[in-house]
Simulated assay, not measured.
Amino acid sequence: MFLDIEATGLSYSTDKIIELGMVKFEYTEDGKIFHLLEDFNQYQDPQVPISEFISRLTGITNDTVKGHNIDETELATYLQDVDLIIAHNAQFDRTFFEKTFPSIPPKAWSCTMFDVQWNQEGISSYKLEYIAYKYNFFYEGHRAVIDCLAGIHILAQELPCSQELVLKQLLTNALKLRFKLWAVGAHYNCKDLLRERGYRWENHQTNDYKAWSIEVIEENVAEEINYLRSTIYRSSINIPIEVFDAYSRFSYNPQYLKNDIKYQDKISWAKRLCSQ
């Protein structure tokens, strides 16, 4: 299922959902989409004024959402047979979704922004509208179901260089464990090196610190730790390391993020690499 959320702003902790759109589809094992199923589209009154900027961006006004509430029973029923939720920038959509609907059981999530290697395919921007442009179609962005349909259309395409189906690559990457390395205490002078390598400066979701972080798949962990030890810290290191699967990735919920016991062997292995 492809999911898209429109909200009053970017912060799940202070902003509110104003529209939720979802579209189910069926596909074969090799990633071919063959059947679109029913969609789900409902508005939510955020109980706070929608800014002029958001109204211009989405076309959703205070009058559009007035008195509307997303029916959580209908939502739960719609999600029953869904195996995977896909979003474009799933970190945004999943955090809003979980904050708004805490009683909905967790699902596996994947992301068309991060689980497809667009840069290796000659597509330089991760914006959905730009990717659509590269596939020679245009659409009215920032309306939930329309964004979902655009996302599914992109999933059905072949990647420009590898000729692999977009959905096939996404599914392959969604199954991989992700290791998040936090370069806590890295010297300020290293910020450009870290940024160029793909690190992001961000707050930790549940702990009270901010640092450069990167997410890598298991086969790249040793290389990345070696880079940190030899280039950034120039010594053995002891940094926070987290492991995520499709059920915990992109979540803010501490209940889903507690993978330290589930993947203790993986974390211990990575920690040993840090101290070598």
Results as ranks from 00 to 15, higher is better:
L177E: 08
Q91M: 09
I54L: 08
L128P: 03
I50T: 00
K16G: 01
G151R: 02
L20G: 08
E121D: 09
F53K: 14
H35I: 00
V65T: 11
K176A: 13
E74S: 15
F244N: 10
T14G: 05
N136M: 06
L165W: 02
F40V: 03
A108P: 02
Q117I: 06
Y126D: 06
E140G: 00
G198Q: 07
Y78V: 02
K262M: 05
Y139N: 04
S125C: 07
W212F: 15
Q120P: 00
G59K: 06
F34P: 01
V145A: 10
L273D: 04
L3W: 01
R178V: 13
D81P: 03
Y126K: 10
R249W: 09
L175D: 14
L3G: 03
L159Y: 09
F2H: 09
V221L: 12
Y188S: 11
G185W: 03
A87Y: 02
H35K: 15
F53R: 14
K210S: 15
R56S: 14
Q44N: 15
L57P: 03
S275D: 04
V65M: 10
Q264H: 12
I214M: 10
K134S: 11
I104A: 07
F53G: 01
Q42V: 00
L128T: 12
K180S: 14
I50P: 01
Q276E: 13
E38V: 00
P49K: 11
E98Y: 04
S124Q: 12
E223R: 12
K262L: 13
A186K: 07
Y247S: 03
